[in-house]
Design a protein around this nucleic acid. Structure first.
Lengths: 189, 189
DNA sequence: AAGCTAAACTAACAAGCGTTAGTTTAATAT
DNA sequence: ATATTAAACTAACGCTTGTTAGTTTAGCTT
């Protein structure tokens, strides 16, 4: 358990390939080749292809769950909580752009952990919705189209992994401020 | 060329499976089984698996290109053009929820048509950006964060295929109005 | 120098892949 | 009745898949 370096290297290389072609289209030989070794050698470090996907997705999903728990338990205004959610997505997405692709596109290929993942996602969306609901109750947020608002914000935040790597010299603090502003106040002058 | 019915049936069944598991994870035997026939029988109607993907994606991409051309050539205010773009995405997405999944997630598996697809997508995004830019020039739209605005709107619109089928009794006109309002005016009270 | 260990290797497997060739079936048109 | 045709079938192909077993290599520890 001392040297997890090689295993982590395999997992992050896999995440990179999964982002480009998707889990199913990446073969163990592709992954081995990207690592400069033979396919069989991978199994000195990981137990199966499925295991790689599990590690990538579940660790990310749990990061979101933990982040949401912190935000939820604060006493901040709802609009501030929403800003913190934006920040959470930007932070996690920028730290693991490749893994986020698997989280978004390959979760259905989870086997043992599929149900667990779905529960985490469901709970996360529910917490998000409740924050918006409280914003409506406290007169911070417009009292119409709750589902449309939630869908719109979540869709944008879930696509950050595609967008962040395309921008060079990206200041994450600035992005968080700008994106929060666009999501909360719109684009109308 | 008279009876395209069976071929179209195969293609829409394939699109449904592609949405659930992705192009690479769906086998011709899966598709045949969903049609109630044997895999070899599919080849009486289609020439290859790749050909199915091509038909699904390119026809949708061209629909967006055509829709954008109409919007662009009008003399409407930029905010009205944006509302028409929202309508365009809702219309196409609701008519072909399954195909939209392939367009969004499996375009990288196109072979001969990959370059063509990328050009259509690039041009579409460019037209979208120019409409926003004109909105800034005409003082309809805030003059900051053009890229963030474009990213946010496009991300939401591209996710409609996931969201529309989850809502029952969905009035598309109403959705277009509500979504336009959220995207343009935000959620702030 | 000898032993240990991490991490690579070769070789092979059973199963599944997309696809082709040739044949049968059942309905329609002559 | 006969010929045609659309659409299914069986059987097989060459290749690729994830994975296992057993072996070799090279660097550290004693």
């Amino acid at each position: 358990m001392k040297q997890e370096t090689r295993k982590e290297e395999i997992i992050s290389t896999a995440a990179k390939l999964f982002k480009e072609k998707g889990y199913s289209a990446v073969t163990m030989r592709d992954l081995a080749s990207a690592m400069g070794i033979k396919a069989a050698s991978l199994y000195n470090h990981i137990s199966s292809k499925q295991d790689i996907l599990k590690v990538i997705i579940i660790s990310l999903a749990e990061s979101f769950t933990e982040g949401m728990a912190v935000i939820q338990s604060s006493n901040d205004l709802c609009l501030d909580k929403l800003r913190q959610i934006v920040k959470l997505h930007i932070t996690i997405s920028s730290q693991n752009v490749y893994g986020m692709a698997s989280l978004n596109n390959d979760w259905m290929h989870l086997e043992e952990q599929l149900e667990y993942y779905l529960k985490l996602r469901h709970d996360y969306e529910n917490d998000f919705r409740n924050i918006l609901k409280q914003g409506i109750d406290s007169n911070e947020v417009i009292d119409k189209n709750l589902d449309v608002m939630l869908f719109s914000m979540l869709s944008t935040l879930r696509s950050l992994y595609l967008w962040i790597p395309k921008k060079e010299d990206l200041n994450l603090e600035e992005l968080a401020a700008n994106l929060s502003n666009v999501l909360i106040n719109g684009i109308n002058k």
